[in-house]
Simulated scan of single mutants.
Amino acid sequence: MQIAEARALDCAYFDANRCRSCTLLPTPYALQLTEQQARIEALLPTMAWDAPHASAVGGFRNKAKMVVAGTVAAPTLGILAPDGSGIDLQACPLHEQPLVAAMPTLEAFVREARITPYDVPSRRGELKHLILTASPDGELALRLVLRSSEALPRIRKHLDLLASLPFTSVSANLQPEHKAVLEGEEELLLAGSGVLVMRVNDIGLRLRPRSFFQTNTAVAAALYRQASGWIDEADPESVLDLYCGVGGFALHAARAGRRVAGVEVTAEAIDAARETAAELRVDASFAVGDATGVDLEGARAPELVVVNPPRRGIGSLAARLEASAVERLVYSSCNPATLARDLAAMPSLRPVRGRVFDMFPHTEHAEVLVELARRRGALAGRTGTPGLAMPRL
Rank of each mutant, 00 (worst) to 15 (best):
I3K: 15
R7Y: 10
A8N: 03
L9G: 07
D15F: 08
N17L: 12
R20H: 15
T23S: 14
L31C: 10
Q32H: 12
Q36T: 12
Q37A: 14
I40C: 11
E41K: 10
A42V: 00
S55W: 11
A56R: 15
V67P: 01
T71E: 09
A73P: 03
P82M: 01
P82C: 00
D83Y: 03
G84A: 13
S85P: 05
A91C: 07
A91L: 09
H95D: 12
E96R: 12
V100T: 14
T105C: 08
R111W: 05
R111G: 05
D119G: 05
G125D: 06
K128M: 06
I131R: 01
P136S: 06
P136C: 04
R147Y: 02
E150D: 13
A151K: 05
K157E: 15
H158R: 06
L161Y: 08
L165T: 08
S169H: 05
S171T: 10
N173V: 05
L174N: 06
Q175G: 04
E177A: 14
E177P: 00
V181S: 11
L182F: 12
E183S: 12
V200Y: 02
G204C: 01
P209Y: 03
S211A: 15
F213Y: 15
T215H: 08
N216F: 09
N216V: 09
A220R: 06
A221D: 10
A222W: 00
Q226K: 14
W230S: 11
D232S: 13
E237Y: 01
S238T: 15
V239R: 08
C244P: 05
G245I: 04
G245S: 09
V246H: 01
G247N: 07
A250D: 05
L251I: 08
G257C: 02
G257E: 05
R258A: 06
R259E: 12
R259S: 13
V265A: 14
V265W: 01
V265D: 08
T266V: 11
A267E: 14
A267D: 04
V282A: 13
A284I: 10
L296T: 04
G298N: 07
V305E: 05
V307R: 02
P310R: 01
G313H: 06
L321G: 04
A323S: 11
S324R: 02
A325P: 01
E327W: 01
Y331C: 02
Y331N: 05
S333C: 12
C334V: 04
N335G: 08
P336Y: 07
A337G: 07
D342Y: 03
L343E: 04
A345W: 00
M346T: 02
P347G: 07
L349R: 00
V352M: 10
R355K: 13
R355G: 07
V356P: 00
F360M: 14
L372F: 04
R375M: 13
R375N: 14
R375Q: 15
R375L: 15
R376D: 15
R382F: 03
T383D: 14
P391S: 12
